[in-house]
Amino acid sequence: MKFVHIARNTFRESVRDRVLYNLVVFVLLLVVAAVVIGRIAVGQEAKIIVDAGLSAMTVFGLLIAIFLGLGLVTKEIEKRTLANILSKPVRRAEFILGKYLGLSLTLLVNAVVMAVAITLALLYAQGGADSLQWRLWPTAFLLWLELLIVTAVALLFSCFSSPALSALFTLLVFLIGRWSLDLKLFAETASSPATRWLSRALYHLLPNLANFNFINQTAYGQVVPWQLLVGNTAYAVCYIAAVLAAAVLIFERRDFK
């Protein structure tokens, strides 16, 4: 259970490094948006707040997931704090898991506060309770799951590649993952067999993130179907487990000279 202590410490680090200050920026933006939109787009406010709010949540979360995800392990190597951990009765796998869960917790706190902020903005804009105010929560949950996948990918890359390259790769994985349906289509229709094979391999290897983005539908009044919620959760858990297992395999073999 030592990964719990490591997770706690990782969470504490992000709090003390003022990562959660991004929430202040987010809330300010949302307040300004709610007020301004109320003036210029009468009747559309709720839709725009949900759309803009959840999109901003994705961007902010993505920045945290990529940059903090990359630093989870590399910072401990560079600052030589890893020497202290490895000399103690801690498995390298426990270390990776703890670091990962710590950042997941940071992302969760971040997501919850943002969703609360959006809900309050809606309450203000709609002038009372509305079903949209709870319907955005499953959508926010899916976005959090998506960020968890991105974090795991960033962690994996950082185990064998330089921070700059890892950031680039992770961003690419996110973008391609978001457009995975197009990738699938491309795989089916590409003319050369090599391209077809490559795009099919990528489609299966990279995370399928298209299903996690339900922002638009939510803004237009749809509810996330429970099948999608369950399916995506199962998918995220399996995908993250596989990626973390790969990260542990690489990390176990590494020398820190």
Partner: peptide, 25 residues
């Protein structure tokens, strides 16, 4: 173990750091 250049988590206080090391042990 005392490393040659002791770099520890600089965001922790000395007390928190020792506690953390303790539970890890």
């Amino acid at each position: 173990y005392l490393p040659e250049q002791p770099y520890f988590y600089d965001y922790l206080t000395a007390r928190e750091f020792l506690l953390y090391c303790g539970v890890l042990c």
